[in-house]
């Protein structure tokens, strides 16, 4: 079972979106003024939507060392500070949300399996509801989803560190069960990454 540290800046209801299950046990780390968590017991660091990127910048060297040990990071948020190794999220509002569509890229680990992209493209018929801005991806990282303007929206980075990073351009992901219903795209993408971490015998650098 993966041990995951879920970073929390005290948002109301956050714990409902990351529920421990047969693959992952979540421990919540509440950000304080002296934020400096011990990452060593964990396999996975989860930085969810709405996180504190001032706090994350304070531990950027620790995150880098964690990843260089072959561990994993999920950041599904707008990482506006420079704490994610090799990659940077940028906000942008120069394109019409009406025109946003997501296009799959190379996906050698099958992280897009069982995902209905139309769930990300449209919600109640509206487009542009999921991601915001885009990621300047590290050279060599896999762009799993690009937007209408070929900008990276979902990135799997196995090259910047010895570990693995799944990054989204601020689009939320979740680890919840909908009582027997099929997983939504937001859950399926996250769980495909968890499945990769749980079953992979190949280190990130192959």
């Amino acid at each position: 079972m993966l041990q995951a540290l879920l970073i929390s800046n005290g948002l109301q209801g956050l714990e409902k979106y990351y529920v421990s299950n047969e693959l992952v046990r979540y421990t919540i780390c509440l950000i304080t003024k002296d934020f400096n968590p011990d990452l060593t017991p964990y396999d996975l660091l989860v930085v969810p939507n709405g996180s504190d990127h001032v706090a994350m910048l304070k531990i950027k060297d620790k995150v880098r060392a964690f990843l260089d040990e072959g561990k994993a990071l999920v950041c599904c948020d707008g990482f506006f500070t420079a704490w994610v190794p090799g990659n940077q999220w940028l906000m942008d509002n120069s394109r019409r949300t009406l025109d946003v569509r997501y296009l799959p890229g190379p996906d050698r680990h099958g992280l897009l399996q069982n995902i209905d992209l139309d769930q990300l493209n449209f919600s109640h018929g509206m487009s542009g509801w999921w991601s915001c801005g885009y990621i300047q991806a590290a050279p060599g990282a896999e762009v799993l989803l690009a937007d209408t303007w070929q900008r990276a929206i979902v990135v799997l980075d196995e090259v910047s560190t010895n570990g693995r990073m799944l990054l989204t351009a601020s689009g939320p992901l979740a680890d919840v069960t909908y009582s027997g219903k099929a997983d939504s795209a937001l859950v399926a993408l996250y769980r495909n990454f968890i499945h990769l971490l749980s079953t992979s015998t190949v280190p990130a650098h192959g």
């Binding site: 948002l11 003024k33 504190d52 990127h53 706090a55 948020d77 990482f79 506006f80």
Partner: peptide, 26 residues
């Protein structure tokens, strides 16, 4: 400011940034 990107995007936007100051909550 709770370190959240949307707070940051609004307060640092050119039309607002001279009027708003981010005060990190901690």
């Amino acid at each position: 400011f709770n370190g959240v990107w949307s707070h940051y995007a609004m307060a640092t936007a050119p039309k607002y940034r001279d009027l708003y100051e981010l005060l990190y909550v901690h």
